[in-house]
Amino acid sequence: MSHHIVEVTGLEFTYPDGTPALAGVSFRITHGESVAVVGANGAGKSTLLLHLNGVLVPQKGAVRIGEIPLTRQTLPEIRKTVGMVFQDPDDQLFMPTVYEDVAFGPLNLALPPDEVERRVRTALERVGAWDLRNRPPHRLSGGEKRAVAIATVLAMGPDILVMDEPTSNLDPRARRRLMDLLASFEHTKIIATHDLDMALELCHRTIVVHDGRITRDGPTAEMFTDDELLERSGLERPLGLRACPVCGSLPMAGLDAAEGG
């Protein structure tokens, strides 16, 4: 399934008010990869993500999903393949009940009713939210909203999941549940996040974005122990890679680069 490949070449984007957001971004993500996109606020992460399913169309450069180049004509096809989970679930859940919200996408795909019902059920069961199906979205907790938002995307049957800050605003238990859920997906995943510990756990590869450019693209553990790079990109070492604040013992991963604390 070459469908799962995401290829971005020389992507540039400037907002209408003149703010440059992306200045030549290129990468290739292959089938089943799980990739974190990290960087300081305003580095261009969200803008990059919005290009991946055509919310924004490249001003320069190109985006290809599988064999299909992203253009206005291929948008419907691309959006079926690339599922986008937004940062604020309230933006994504607009129907009166959870069930109807998850059915929204499949109904727009003009699937037959029994197939729609099957997909809604599968998606909600997958995220453990089937019991919430008759609830209005605005009455759910933060973690529940997030799970349902993911179900709305799963019901479209995408090959690639693009997520903006999936763990933000969640309590630790809800964050853990969400991470376990994401780890269980076999989709190609692209996750923009400030939660570097989550990135370390879920993504073997990380792309660091700074001032609209990619400053580094490589294995996550290696990158998060490069203090000089992290400093330059407005980031800091994830807690999981720091010396223990209580006993001072070194972390298990990335021992070679840790200077001790």
Partner: peptide, 17 residues
């Protein structure tokens, strides 16, 4: 919200089960 709707194939009509 509009963006999120477009991402899920919204064309202006609300379909219902």
């Amino acid at each position: 919200i509009h963006t999120a709707m477009l991402c899920r194939g919204f064309t202006g009509e609300f379909h219902s089960l």
